[in-house]
């Protein structure tokens, strides 16, 4: 590589093409993340259900996706599922299904540990105030679980963003696929893949920074400032009637 002649003009010329690929990558990542973050709620609830069959089914689903390579999952949906059902799913949609199914499994586990971090008495207090099960979830459990699990959720999403590169193997024209095509045609693998790496990095790195910032902050909670009363007079003492 000592005498390698960098050809950045080539990269510049193919930038529109790469950006087209990036658009597909981002589209796929965002759709996957949004869908998975929604679908993971019922899956996490099923994973904690009182009914054993429901719980086992949810756990089985999660373990299948956690314990098999994502590439196999992708190929299975793209190549194997049509053999089973007779329906061929286009590449982009196969990719979306596989990535969503995968991320949902991991996200559900993050949600579950978030849900379980909310003290049960807080939920029972909601029950005593006649909040419905859905209202308890919506107003008490989910907001706290999300807050507690934000770093985990963000890093899962960063991983997913990077893993979208796998879909190039089933001919989805994402950033990785287009880079590969350009590199193969031009024999300029170094410039092209370096550019691709930089593009992935520029997007993932800020999110990673935010993640570690949140993590640091949650490790050392700031001392809450005492609340300033509107009225500066000494706290109106409540004279206990029965107790002296």
């Amino acid at each position: 590589m000592n005498n390698y002649n960098f050809d950045w003009a080539l990269v510049w010329g193919s930038l529109p093409d790469l950006m087209g690929g990036l658009a597909t990558t981002i589209q796929l990542a965002i759709l996957t993340i949004v869908l998975a973050m929604i679908l993971a709620i019922p899956l996490a609830l099923a994973r904690m259900a009182k009914i054993e069959i429901v719980r086992w089914a949810a756990q089985g689903y999660i373990e299948i996706f956690r314990c098999t390579p994502m590439l196999v999952q992708l190929f299975w949906i793209f190549y194997a599922l049509p053999a089973l059902t007779g329906i061929t799913i286009p590449g982009f949609w196969s990719a979306l299904i596989a990535l969503t199914a995968n991320l949902t499994a991991f996200m559900a586990e993050a949600y579950r540990s978030g849900f379980q971090s909310v003290p049960v008495e807080q939920v029972e207090a909601g029950q005593m105030l006649r909040l419905s099960r859905m209202q308890q979830l919506r107003y008490i459990i989910v907001p706290q679980a999300l807050r507690q699990q934000t770093p985990v959720i963000l890093s899962l999403n960063i991983s997913m963003f990077k893993d979208t590169a796998l879909v190039s193997t089933i001919a989805v024209a994402d950033l990785m696929f287009r880079s590969n095509v350009i590199a193969t045609q031009s024999y300029k693998a170094l410039e092209v893949f370096t550019t691709a790496a930089v593009i992935y990095f520029v997007i993932a790195f800020p999110v990673s920074l935010i993640t570690s910032h949140i993590e640091r902050r949650s490790l050392q909670p700031p001392k809450p400032k005492p609340f300033k009363r509107a009225d500066a007079s000494p706290a109106n003492p409540i004279v206990p009637e029965g107790v002296r």
Binding site: P119, E121, Q122, A125, G126, M128, R130, Y139, I140, Q144
Partner: peptide, 20 residues
């Protein structure tokens, strides 16, 4: 049940105000 139970409130040993 619902009509009757609405007459009952409860306060717990641990602090159960919703912190968020």
């Amino acid at each position: 049940w619902n009509a009757g139970a609405s007459l009952v409130g409860m306060v717990f040993q641990s602090y159960t105000l919703w912190p968020h």
